[in-house]
């Protein structure tokens, strides 16, 4: 007998609804595709959302808030978690000149992210709470949460790239230390002259 796709009938090995209902609690309670919460995809019901406005009040602090140029206006409500500032802020603001369809927009944002992170690490050393790669990476969980037993003999495929993580995390630190050493040497050399 040829296998399923070479003939018209559906696969034969699907259990009956009775068997499935007996084995699986709730089997088929949402059987009707038209009676599911996200069917149809769009249901026009502005009164059903709880909103008691046609257009929301506008939040304060709108001046200077960056926005996508694909927006016709600044949205009435927005997050204020970490306003743009410093060098990374300028980089990010520049990224917002490009539309969301442009790779430049996202790649410049990612650059801003890295500059933000390096800047924050550097600045943290002037505070009472410098960045601590041990506690902040949570790497001590390796000991407390059975790092070795969780991986060895488990045929996990993510082990083949997890070794890269310390490089992704530590690489910039090594580079920064090297940079600091070079700067220090230059200063010392200049002082000697």
């Amino acid at each position: 007998m040829p296998s399923t796709p070479y003939i018209a009938n559906k696969p034969k090995d699907i259990p009956t609804p009775e068997a499935l209902r007996a084995r699986i609690p709730g089997w088929g309670v949402d059987l009707d595709p038209k009676d599911r919460p996200s069917y149809p995809r769009e249901v026009f019901d502005p009164a059903g959302t709880g909103a008691h406005w046609d257009y929301p009040d506008e939040q304060q602090g709108r001046e200077g808030r960056e926005r996508s140029i694909e927006h016709g206006q600044l949205t009435p409500v927005f997050g204020t978690s970490a306003p743009l500032k410093g060098v990374s802020g300028s980089i990010r603001r520049y990224a917002y000149r490009y539309g969301e369809g442009r790779a430049a927009h996202w790649l410049i944002l990612l650059l801003g992210d890295r500059v933000d992170a390096w800047g924050a690490h550097a600045k943290s050393f002037a505070t009472l709470r410098p960045d601590n790669p041990i506690t902040e990476t949570g790497v001590l969980a390796e000991g407390r949460r059975h790092g070795i037993a969780s991986r060895v003999g488990k045929r996990r495929v993510d082990v083949n790239h997890q070794w890269l993580d310390p490089i992704v995390v530590g690489g910039p630190w090594v580079a920064a230390t090297a940079g600091a050493v070079l700067v220090a040497r230059a200063i010392v050399r200049r002082a000697r002259h």
Partner: peptide
Amino acid sequence: NVNPNATA
């Protein structure tokens, strides 16, 4: 109405 940073 809530995300000025992206429309997508």
